[in-house]
């Protein structure tokens, strides 16, 4: 499953209400974010990432919306930033949207993305000290899956065990 051959790359099925921007370099993020903030998108719903091991990319996916502009309120705007997996660095958005504070910390621990300029970049959900180093939401981190058949011991097989 994880080495998916049919890896998804960005076709949109979101409703027509939604707009979307993909940017290739993290340098463009801050000016764009500032523009969007000025336009009225004042809070971040979700900031997370998706790992694409095939193209060796991490996409930072940000969903933003507005609490104050009537016409923007029903919209969810998606902002995608392509990052190199070898060096996932991106400027922090905390000065533009303070609401990203905890979500950036989460993306940091789950994907290893470094947010430059974040004042308090440490783990939030996972243990700081016992952290092994493989960021759990990357596709390299594998979870074993279970079979649907039962491995029977002899005593269980007879159906007599209580």
């Amino acid at each position: 499953m994880t080495d998916s051959s049919r890896e998804f790359q960005g076709t949109s099925l979101l409703s027509e209400k939604t707009s979307e921007i993909i940017i290739d370099s993290p340098d463009q993020l801050l000016p764009l974010a500032k523009q969007l903030k000025d336009k009225g998108y004042d809070h971040v719903i979700s900031l997370s990432a998706v790992d694409y091991p095939k193209s060796n990319e991490l996409h930072l996916v940000i969903h933003i919306s507005s609490y104050t502009k009537r016409d923007l309120q029903p919209k969810v705007f998606e902002l995608r930033v392509k990052l190199k997996k070898s060096e996932p660095k991106v400027p922090s958005l905390i000065n533009i949207w303070p609401s990203v504070e905890f979500q950036e910390r989460e993306a940091y621990e789950m994907f290893g993305i470094v947010f430059e300029g974040h004042p308090d970049l440490r783990n939030i959900l996972l243990d700081q000290e016992e952290f092994s180093g493989v960021h759990p939401l990357l596709k390299d981190f594998k979870i074993p899956e279970e079979d649907i058949t039962l491995k029977l011991k002899e005593d269980v097989k007879s159906g007599t065990n209580k």
Partner: peptide, 26 residues
């Protein structure tokens, strides 16, 4: 048919060999 075992979200239901060519859930 083992559909029950396949849809079980907690892997609580599993199939076992109850006899010759006979699968039953547990």
């Amino acid at each position: 048919c083992s559909l029950c075992a396949r849809i079980c979200p907690a892997s609580a239901m599993k199939m076992f060999q109850a006899g010759e060519k006979k699968l039953r859930p547990a």
